[in-house]
């Protein structure tokens, strides 16, 4: 018997964090949420990850900062932000009012900066959890924690002991084995593991013999990287028990369901927010029916249900 779409429990546990539904929006693709308020009823979202904050203000990289590529885009924004103090003063008060969980994305230059920001933000009203951006390809420093299992473990552990707020670790696909790094995040006590950040890439104007991006190399996102992200989620789901949050080219309800089946407990919509600002609302509208269509009564009923068997 097919479950009625209205009876489905959309809530999702991610370790100590509980989300009202599995559709979140990814850091760096949703501004500070205020920019998107005309397009999406923010209170409906499973969670919002505002643009990554750093300890000190960062000017970001020189333009051009984005360039379109087939079915995707490269970016090298460079964590342009006003620093954690300005974030807490100017953005958190608004974010605390929008009515959905706010997961603050932070990036430190070293472990001490991560720990300081985690401790400071974890005490702020309106912060539901903290995502450690240890995977931004456009700045040096933080990404080191995302390419080595033992430094990842150490960082997650240090942040976990610095704050009672749930901790998510966001991993980069630009490694030989993302599953090994994920094991480090799990050993460190991450409540959830987000994957993937952008895939390193490049675009060239051969006539001028110049890179298209001001920063030469950038991160590829959008539908072009969805197969890579699905593969990473699948591999990591085999390696750890920690809940996963799938990211990478997710734009439609079918994309969402594919990530859930691959092993993600929740998803973040990213680049689609740029080219279809109402996408999160559209996906949320379609989610209950998609779950009902496969006789699920809750999200967990489909998470990690991929069947690997010989073809008939």
């Amino acid at each position: 018997m097919t479950a009625a779409a209205t009876d489905i429990d959309l809530s999702v546990p991610l370790g100590r964090l509980r989300l009202p539904n599995p559709v979140l929006v990814a850091s760096g693709t949703f501004g500070y949420a205020r920019e998107m308020a005309p397009f999406v009823d923010l209170a409906r979202l499973g969670g919002i990850l505002p643009k990554t904050v750093t300890r000190q203000p960062r000017q970001g990289n020189a333009p051009w900062r984005t360039i379109e590529t087939p079915a995707g885009m490269l970016n090298s924004i460079g964590l342009d932000n006003d620093g954690v103090d300005a974030f807490a003063a100017n953005h958190l008060p608004y974010l605390a009012t929008v009515g959905c969980p706010i997961i603050v994305s932070i990036a430190g230059r070293d472990e001490a900066e991560f720990v300081e920001m985690a401790a400071m933000l974890g005490e702020q009203p309106g912060v539901a959890a903290i995502e450690l951006n240890i995977s931004c390809p456009n700045v040096s420093g933080g990404i080191d924690f995302g390419t080595n299992a033992s430094s990842c473990e150490s960082l997650v552990k240090a942040c976990r002991s610095a704050t009672p707020a749930p901790i998510l670790a966001k991993l980069t696909p630009n490694v030989t084995s993302i599953a090994e790094v994920a094991k480090g995040a799990e050993a460190g006590g991450a409540d959830a593991i987000s994957l993937i950040n952008t895939v390193q890439g490049m675009a060239i104007d051969w006539r001028r013999r110049r890179p298209m991006l001001g920063n030469v190399i950038g991160g590829l996102s959008g539908p072009a990287i969805k197969p890579i992200a699905l593969r990473c989620v699948y591999q990591v789901a085999q390696a750890v028990k920690t809940p996963l949050v799938g990211i990478g080219g997710i734009a439609t309800i079918d994309d969402v369901m594919e990530f859930l089946v691959a092993g993600a407990s929740a998803v973040q919509l990213g680049t689609v927010n740029f080219y279809n600002p109402t996408a999160a609302a559209t996906v949320l509208d379609a989610l209950p029916k998609a779950l009902a269509d496969v006789d699920a009564t809750c999200v967990a009923d489909v998470v990690g249900t991929l069947q690997i068997s010989p073809r008939d």
């Binding site: 760096g28 998107m36 051009w64 600002p277």
Partner: peptide, 9 residues
């Protein structure tokens, strides 16, 4: 990329 202030491009 977006025109609405989200991407900082």
């Amino acid at each position: 990329a977006c025109g609405i202030g989200a991407c900082f491009s």
